[in-house]
Design a protein around this nucleic acid. Structure first.
Lengths: 128, 128
DNA sequence: TTTCTAAATAGTAATTGTTACTATTTAGAA
DNA sequence: TTCTAAATAGTAACAATTACTATTTAGAAA
């Protein structure tokens, strides 16, 4: 694969941001550095970075995909109040595919899991 | 809400089919009974039936939503070989939201979970 | 039973997130 | 320095879904 400044910058943005940006977020951020970058270029390179295993993809129902710099095994929760995406690390979840495989008899290899609820911060604000 | 023959038929189709149809599947099936039914009508009524809690929705990444007549708490697995959608009933999954809530400190209310792998049938065919 | 009105509809256009296409530019090997 | 395939910008196409608009209809009220 040939070197691409665009691709390097896209990876930099994802690696340096402390959130789970969409393609649109990354595109907007990229235009500050490379003003005439094409949206297609952003899509293509994010896809390549994902295929290379350098970033993770967070597929969400009926909303744009988000991307994640954290490569260790984890899942996500979206807060219904503040819409923030939280990383969820959990031993129980790490064992889930194997456990459910045994329980149901299918050979489960992977899983998409998204949790919905109210995050710790928003719970505090609510005065609960 | 006013009675609608269309809506009744859509519910019938979903309740009588032994798979997890897409809107397109239901639309095709509906046209056999009501040939000039509009796709928008199918979308709107499925959405209403879902809001009423008469059917469940299965949101899948980058594929059209599927719908489910089974209302009891359960999840789904998609076989990578045959692409069939299987219902997954599991006590561990039923307790997952509560368990993970305790583990991570957020108040998780619901979760979307989809498993991917090779189903029992396809595993047998493979001669494993 | 007829009239009336808001709900439901058919048909079409618009929207959103994404991929495909094409002419141009460019990394980097020869 | 030349050359070629990879990468790009810009645009069009796409798939799933929602919105819009004129027409039809359920069913309540007269």
């Amino acid at each position: 694969m040939r070197y691409s400044k665009h691709r390097e910058e896209i990876l930099n943005i994802i690696k340096n941001i402390d959130s789970h940006p969409t393609v649109e977020d990354i595109y907007i951020s990229m235009r500050e550095k490379i003003p005439n970058i094409s949206l297609g270029t952003v899509y293509r390179n994010i896809s390549i970075l994902y295929e290379m295993g350098l970033i993770k993809k967070i597929p969400l129902n009926n909303r744009p995909d988000r991307f994640d710099k954290t490569l260790t095994n984890h899942y996500h929760m979206i807060c219904k109040k503040c819409n923030q995406v939280y990383d969820i690390f959990s031993d129980e979840l790490n064992m889930l595919n194997k456990n459910i495989s045994n329980e149901v008899g299918h050979n489960i290899e992977s899983s998409d899991i998204t949790f919905y609820g109210i995050c710790h911060e928003c719970n505090l604000k609510e005065g609960k």
